[in-house]
Amino acid sequence: MKHTIVAWMEDKPGVLNRVASLFRRRNFNIESLTVGHSEAPGISRMTFVVEGDERQIQQVQAQLFKLINVTAVQDVTHMPSVERELALIKVNATGADRSEIIQLVDIYRASIVDVEVDSLIIQIGGPTDRIESLTNLLRNFGIREMVRTGSVAMVRGNGFTPVEGHNGVSETRVAQGARHLTPPKINLPYRPFPQKEKKTWPTSTTTRTLISTY
């Protein structure tokens, strides 16, 4: 089934490449991927629509999570959320077709953003199925060109919003949403919450010293 996954990541060179490469290498099937700024400076937000069974979706999340630049991952498929996509559709519109198309645009609460003698550009924003439904109807008139942005998603109300401030994740927000950070069967705070106090970063010599024999 299709899953919608949201991931937050540092806005650094190569991050998109890392994510795309991961999907290619692990043979995950992406339906759509969108990326843009989040509310936090330096943190981008990606929304993926991925096709796969439960195990694959867990793997997608765990593997994404493993990327050093990824700060949080969440599967919003089963959460109350708003999912939207934008499409621009250039459709043939001559003679009697034109008024029929305008009616459809009204019904679908889409809008006409460009008018030519024999074509119209229609802009529609909404859930994917609504865009698909309008597209199917417009095919009867002849679609010349189409572009879609892919889905973006946001959880409703007090759901999980992990990005706050430059350093990514605020402690309390993550604590609320922590169970979504990881695949459902795996119950672990593997990526623990950033500590507020100053960390001491051990050098390689101060890790567990090696004892060479039993």
Partner: peptide, 14 residues
């Protein structure tokens, strides 16, 4: 150490 910026990497042993 406090200046390092790895918001997505917190490998604490637990």
């Amino acid at each position: 150490s406090a200046d390092l910026d790895l918001p997505g990497y917190h490998p604490v042993l637990i």
